[in-house]
Design a protein around this nucleic acid. Structure first.
Lengths: 135, 135
DNA sequence: AGTGCTGGTCTCTTTTTGAGACTGCCAACA
DNA sequence: TGTTGGCAGTCTCAAAAAGAGACCAGCACT
C-alpha cells in the first residue's frame, strides 16, 4: 500500500532533523514528539478536541488514569502550549481545560494517526497473533 | 488555525474508540497507538522508512539508545508487523531490519505528525519559555 | 456533625528504562 | 599464537517513571 514515493528527500531531511544533536535536548523535533508522545497525552488531546472538560470530568472519562498522571499530563500539555487552563471562582472552584489554537493545529496530524490505528488495528492484531504463534 | 470543523462527528467516534473498554487491553485503538507511541519507535520507523538498516548501523545512527532498548523496540515493531527482520548467514551473521507494507502504511500519518513537529517546534519552545517565565 | 463534591498533593510500591559488562563466533593482525 | 575487533545480541543492577491510594482545604447540603 502507498506505493508512491512521497518526497524521499524530505523523509531523509526529517529523519536527520530527528537525529541531529544526538539527544533530545539538542533536537527540537524529537523534543516536540516526545511531548505529544506520552502515554496519556494523545488520549487527553483527543478528548479535549471534542470539547472542553473539567478535571473531574476527564478523570471520569478516562477511568484508568491516576489523578497523579492526569495532573501531570495536563500540566505538560499546558506548558507546551497545547492546552489552556482556566479557573472559575465557583463555590468549589472548578477548572476547565481546553485546546489552544496550537493544540487544535497539532490535533490534525494526531487525528490522522488515530484514524490509521482505527482502520488497521485488525492487521496489527493479526500480525501479533501470527508472531506469537511462531514462537 | 485550522478553523474548519473537520468531521466533528468522526472526532467523537474516534475518541469513543479510544475510551471504549476503559483500559488498553480492551481498546484496539489505544493498543495500536501505544505500540507506535514508544519512546524510540517513531525514531526507528523514520530511520527504516529511508532504507533498511542493520542492527549495528541503527545503534550508530541513534547514539543515545541503549542496546537493550534497541533490541526490545525492534522486537516490538516486528511483533506488531511494522518491521521485517532478516538474518543473513555471513561470517559474522548480519541482521537487516526493514519496513513491511504495514509499516510503510503507518509511516504516512506518522510522517505528517513529525512534519508538524518540525514546522511548529518554535511555537512549542516559545510556549514553554513563556510558561516557565510565568512561574 | 457528618457526608460529598471540588482539584489537586504526598507517599509508597511496582514497572520501565538506562548504563554497561558479558557472550560466542570468526577474521585480520602482529 | 596470542590479541584485537566487529557482529548481534543477553544479563544484571541502578535510576527514573508510573500506578495506587491516602490525604488536604473549603464549601454546601442534611
Amino acid at each position: 500500500m502507498d506505493g508512491k514515493i512521497v518526497n524521499l528527500k524530505s523523509k531523509i531531511e526529517i529523519y536527520k532533523a530527528m537525529t541531529d544533536g544526538a539527544n533530545f535536548a539538542d533536537c527540537p523535533v524529537r523534543d516536540v514528539i516526545h511531548g505529544i508522545n506520552g502515554k496519556w497525552s494523545p488520549l487527553l488531546v483527543m478528548a479535549l478536541a471534542e470539547k472542553p472538560y473539567r478535571f473531574g470530568e476527564l478523570r471520569r472519562l478516562v477511568p484508568d488514569i491516576s489523578q497523579r498522571m492526569l495532573t501531570q499530563t495536563l500540566h505538560e500539555l499546558q506548558r507546551d502550549g497545547y492546552v489552556h487552563r482556566e479557573v472559575f471562582p465557583t463555590k468549589p472552584p472548578s477548572v476547565e481545560y481546553s485546546l489552544t489554537d496550537l493544540g487544535r493545529s497539532m490535533f490534525v496530524p494526531l487525528y490522522h494517526l488515530v484514524q490509521w490505528a482505527e482502520l488497521n488495528h485488525d492487521a496489527v492484531r493479526d500480525a501479533r497473533a501470527a508472531f506469537d504463534a511462531r514462537m
